[in-house]
Structures are given as C-alpha cells and as structure tokens.
Design a protein around this nucleic acid. Structure first.
Length: 685
DNA sequence: GAGCTCTGAATTTTT
DNA sequence: TTCAGAGCTC
C-alpha cells in the first residue's frame, strides 16, 4: 500500500536536530532541549519511530515526570503510527514512582515484600515519623526537636541524594545537627516500622528498585525486559534515579534522556542538574544533541527570558531563538495592591477573551498556591470559570484520607496508620485501644474480621459492630469493584463524618467524586496506587473528563505549569518574598533555583506575557507586627532585564478615588486610638 | 484511657 | 486562621 517514503513522511515535520534525535540508532543519547523546542514532540516521535522500526512496544520504557505527560506523549505517538501495529498502549510509560510500583509488584519476593503492600503519601509518612518520635520521647526535650515535616525532609534528602545523614545535616539543615544521633535512631525505627506495616513511602519505591538492580542477576532480568529507555525532564531527577537508570541499562545502553538545565526546579526534592552534566560520564559513548529553536514564544518574550536566565550563576550557554516575531513586548505591570492586580487581570483576561483567545489558552501563574486566593474570589464574583493546578488539597482533606484509609486496611491489614486513622474516629477508642485492636488483628493472622471477637469497651461497642459488619460485607469482594466498595464504606462512614466534621455536605460531595473516580477502575489495588502516586491535580480531574466546549481559565503554581504552554501567561506576585520565596532565600543555590522558576514561568507564554507586582501586600495571618508590607520587585527582573519589557504603572495611569495611598498616615493609627479609649478611664469622642 | 479545652506556633514547591 | 500538642477532667 504505502511506500517506505510515505510511511516516514512524518519525519519531515521535524527540524534537523529533532530528526537526528528521533532517528538516532543505538547507544546513549543526551538531548539538551531548551524551553519550547519540541521536547515532547521529539520524545513522542522517537517512540513512534522505534515502533515503526519494528520494536516491540512492551519493551520500551518511557519515564516521565507526571502520568499526564506519559499519556500525552503516547497519545501523540499513536497518532503518528496509525498504520501497521500502533501498540503504544503497551509501552511501559509513567513516572519513576509508578514504574517502580509496577516492577515491585512483579518482583516483590526478591525485594522481600508482600505483594499486597500499600503506599503511604507524605502526610502518612510524617504521621508515622511523629508516632515514633513520641515513642522515643523526643517530643518532650528541653530544646525543640525538629518538626515531623522537617524530619521527613531530612530523611528523604538522605535517601534521594544518596547522601549520609551527617553530610545532609551539615549542608542543608545545620540547625538540626545537634539531633544527629536521635534522628538516626528515629529513621532506623521508621524503616523497621514501615516493613512491619507492609507499607512503602514514596522514597521506598525508588529505594527498593535500586536495591533490586544492585543484585546482578536481577539487574540482568529487569534490565533485560526492555530494549529502549527514554527519560523526560532529566534535569529534575535525583541521584537515586540516575542510579536506577544505570541499573536499567546493564543489558543494553539504549538510553535517551531529555532535559533543560535552565528549568531545574526540584532541588528541594533532591533533584540535581549534575545528573545531566554527568550523563556522558555515566554512560560512555554518549552523543549530545542540542535543541535551540523555540517554536512556542514570540521573540520579545524569549528576549526577556534569555536576559533573565543569562544572569544565572552557572549556566550552559544556550540561546533560544524563534522565527515568531511580534511588536508586543512583555509587560511589567506595577499595581497598588493585590486588589488592583486582580482588577487588572480580570479586565485583561476578558479583553483577550473577546479578541478570540479562549480562557483555556490563558494561565495565571504564581509561586505558591495561596497566592491566588484573592483572585479566585474575584473570578467567582465575575462568574469566570477556572481550574486550579497545584496545592495538594483534595487528597489531603481529612475525610478523603479517612475513606482511603478504610480501603487501605482492607488491602493491607498490617497498615498501622490506616487502622489508627479509622479507629480513632470512633467513640470510646483512643490510641491505646486502637493499638490493642491492631494487635488482636495481627495475632489472628492479620484477618480484619478478627475485630468481631475483640472485647471492646462499652462506649465503642456500637460503632465497632457497624465497622465489623462493613468489613464482613467487603472482604468477600476481594480487590474488585472499588466503586461498589466505596459505596458500602460511605454507608458506614456517613455518621462518623457528620459527627466529626462540620460542613458535612461539602465533604460528602468529595466522597461522591472519589466514588466516581473509582468507577473507572476494576481493581482496588490499582485505584489506591494511582490515587497515591498521581493524585487528582485539579478540580477538573474530579468531575471526570470535562466536556469539550467547556472553557475555563487556568490557575497554576509555577511548579505545576512545567511542560505546559498557553497563548497568554500572567505571572503574578512577582515580588521579593514571594518570588524568590522567603523560604528559599537562604542559600545561593536556593536563589538560583528560584531564578530558574521565574524562567520557567516566562517561557510558558506563546504570544502575550504579563508580569505583575503589587506594591503592597495585606497579610492574611495574625501575629505580624504590621497588617501589610511594602514589596520590592522580584530581584530577577534586574536593570538588565526590565528594559526588554514595557513597564506599566497602573496607579499612576488611572488614579482612583479610594486610593489608600492618599492617606499617608499609617493605618494603625485608628486602632491605636480605639485602644486608647480605655486608658485612664478617659473616653474620647 | 478518652476526650475536651486551652495555648502557642507557623504558614512553598510535589512524587 | 488552623493545627498540633499539653494538660486537665471524667
């Protein structure tokens, strides 16, 4: 039917560098791909090319940063190889963590795991650490022991960066150095406790994978499952992940990694650009290809972005260029305060919308999830629909965690955290009774039905009986039909929910969503794993696939915007303290990462870019000496960068009658006077 | 041992 | 404001 020439006509859609990467033969390949240079396209075409060359799709491993990225690439790939056998569905695609999970279920015996292990999210991991911290009596020390969150970060850092505790404390957590011995003890117990509970945390998924691969026979076996390994966003991988890739390439060296050192923004999670720099050293005979032509943004936007990143400490000179010209420079907008910023945004968003740019093609980006709350209120007031990405709200909600915990203890009756969570919701059950119940279950071979024979304190009897009844109804279902299981769980949980939390109706809605998501799954195990490893990232994911004609504005943290692009991008709160975040202004390295974060934000824009900076910020929290602060422009917009932009000063342009600036007296004055009303029995007017 | 109330502390990014 | 933890009472 089709000639060889026709069959590969799609290669003409690539530029020479992309094409070289796509049709590259065997051996290690490092693709340094700047923002918007067609990274996703190159990877997708590479997969398509390999398949069209007759490679077995199930022997291709595609590691990405999010599950969505993997799905998107495979979708594109399957669009290319529609002729012949597409089979992209058989490609092993997903995040490192998801692939680890899949492999560990297969090789659980070699890893010393039971096949029914459950996965803990960050919150559970913190809580378990906290529990052990209490057991060790570390919470009541003269000097305060690091908080559970800090403990987990330290632990995680050690594991992901493959660094010793002492070194990590020295370089990243100097104020915790005095707790070195206690931390080591804590981590030791944490590890044993997880193993007893048959649970893995996120880091364990990678850790167990590394250890599987460190056994030569297993490395041969596992690496031998694949002929090609492709990795996206390589600049955001950590040392442990690099180690994994080494192990996955013992039987071949067909590894292709794609990344951009200027977009490395996950240092806090142990990621290091060293992985990219050292790649040629790790894999002998590496070919390095660079993609510099940007297909996304108009040149003025790239000019500003290039200038901003050119001031980075160390950077690998790579100058993005584009054939897309524009008369319009990016705008740097100065606003009086957040309210004026909101007003400006809404006006401009609607203006672009009327000009024909749908809301979905416009995105508002910010450093931290809470920075959009005021805008969200205004959008709601103006009836502008939006979806917000970033901020892990849904899975962190207490009621969602409760319900998940019940599924988890059914899945893995050794899951201590899951049991505790559920049992403590019931009247008459506190930590010690909960521990007794768990012991009782474990003494009966881990059969959850054993709670039926537990002598419960009278106050707990009714709820525990209902709980037992539910367990008895659910156990025969095995791991099938998670949605039906959730339906049954909700029947039991309803009264606990109403008793424990207010605004029950809102929470019930979340549980209905959860049931809806579950209805797409045949296996409870798969449902649980997906939920932990790739939680619904936006309100959109909860309501099922949105209908095609639905339009909504995008709100996103910069981190969650990674890999995305829009016609119009608004970067808001571009002020020192928010960007760079005060929390990250400690070290030079942290600041450099914040600069790259700004770079990532700018390079998401295709046609229009607005950077806005409110002069004044009203604090939402108590306990601060002043109700607002005056903010400086984000330091990355230096005197070299700003001239490439068009500066707009809103307050000067259109003075407002209720402009607070006109009242030059400090706003504290009135509250002070009101307090003085009660001084010396004097009551002034 | 459970569960309530009060106090004090601290607010990023995410697999 | 929200959350965690300490301490008190039943």
């Amino acid at each position: 039917m089709s000639t060889t020439h026709d069959e590969y006509a799609w290669l003409d859609e690539l530029n020479p560098q992309q094409r070289e990467a796509v049709t590259y033969g065997d051996g290690p390949l490092l693709v340094v791909a700047g923002a918007g240079t067609g990274k996703t396209k190159t990877l997708a075409y590479r997969v398509a090319y390999l398949i069209s060359q007759g490679m077995d799709p199930s022997r291709i491993l595609l590691l990405t940063f999010t599950r969505r990225a993997a799905q998107e690439m495979l979708r594109r790939a399957s669009g290319i190889v529609t002729r012949g056998t597409p089979g992209t569905g058989r490609v092993w695609g997903g995040t490192f963590h998801a692939i680890a999970n899949r492999l560990l279920r297969l090789y659980h015996e070699s890893a010393g795991l039971r096949q029914d292990f459950t996965v803990m999210d960050q919150g559970d991991a913190e809580d378990l650490l906290n529990l052990i911290r209490h057991d060790l009596g570390l919470h009541k020390m003269e000097k305060r022991f690091p908080r559970k969150r800090t403990c987990l970060s330290i632990y995680s850092r050690c594991v992901n960066a493959s660094e010793d505790l002492e070194l990590v404390l020295q370089s990243e957590y100097p104020w915790c150095q005095e707790w070195k011995d206690e931390l080591r003890e804590l981590f030791k117990l944490y590890v044993t406790r997880k193993q007893e509970n048959n649970v893995l945390d996120f880091d364990d998924l990678l850790l167990y994978w590394v250890h599987l691969l460190s056994t030569p026979a297993l490395a041969t076996e596992i690496s031998g499952r694949f002929d090609y390994v492709l990795v996206d966003e390589y600049q955001d991988t950590n040392r442990m992940q690099a180690q994994i890739l080494g192990g996955m390439c013992t039987e071949h060296d067909n590894i292709m990694v794609v990344g951009d050192d200027a977009q490395s923004i996950y240092r806090f999670r142990g990621a290091t650009v060293r992985n990219m720099l050292d790649f040629p050293k790790q894999f002998a005979g590496t070919t390095v290809l660079t993609l510099e032509q940007n297909y996304r943004s108009v040149m003025p936007i790239l000019d500003t972005a290039n200038l901003l990143i050119s001031e980075a400490e160390d950077q690998y000179t790579k100058e993005l260029w584009s054939e897309r010209s524009s008369q319009q420079r990016p705008k740097l907008v100065t606003c009086k305060d957040e309210g004026e910023q909101d007003e400006f945004l809404i006006e401009r968003i609607l203006q672009h919308y009327e000009e024909g740019i749908p809301l979905k093609e416009q995105a508002v980006l910010f450093r931290a999830a809470y920075l959009s709350t005021s805008l969200e209120l205004e959008l709601t007031r103006h009836n502008i629909p939006y979806h917000k990405y970033g901020g892990l709200k849904f899975m962190e909600a207490a009621h969602v965690k409760d319900l998940i915990a019940i599924l988890r203890l059914l899945e893995n009756p050794r899951d201590e955290m899951a049991w505790f969570r559920v049992l403590l919701l019931m009247d008459g059950i506190g930590p010690s009774t909960a521990a007794k119940i768990l012991d009782h279950v474990l003494a009966n071979g881990g059969d959850p039905q054993a709670i039926g024979s537990f002598k419960a304190p009278p106050a707990a009897r009714d709820e525990l009986r209902a709980f037992t009844q539910m367990i008895e109804d659910l156990l025969p279902m095995g791991i099938n039909e998670p949605a039906i299981q959730i339906e049954r769980i909700r029947k039991f949980y309803d009264s606990l929910l109403k008793k424990t939390y207010d605004n029950a109706s809102v929470r019930v809605r979340d549980l209905v969503s959860l049931e809806q998501i579950a209805s797409g799954y045949a296996s409870r195990r798969k449902f649980l794993v997906d939920l932990q490893l790739d939680p619904p990232s936006a309100t959109a994911d909860l309501a099922g696939p949105p209908s095609r004609d639905e339009d909504y504005l995008i709100l996103s943290t910069i981190h969650s915007a990674k890999g995305c692009e829009w016609d119009v991008v608004y970067l808001i709160h571009a002020t020192d303290g928010f960007l760079p975040s005060d929390m990250s202004a400690g070290s030079e390295e942290e600041l450099e990462e914040e600069r790259r974060l700004a770079y990532v934000a700018l390079t998401r824009a295709r046609d229009f870019l607005y950077v806005s900076r409110p002069l004044r910020y009203y604090h939402r929290w108590y306990g601060l000496s002043s109700p607002h602060s005056y903010m400086q422009l984000c330091r990355f917009f230096s005197r070299h960068v700003v001239p490439s932009m068009e500066t707009v000063n809103l307050s000067r342009q259109q003075p407002r009658r209720n402009d607070m600036e006109s009242f030059s007296e400090p706003p504290m004055d009135i509250s002070e006077r009101i307090r003085q009303m009660w001084d010396d029995g004097e009551v002034p007017v």
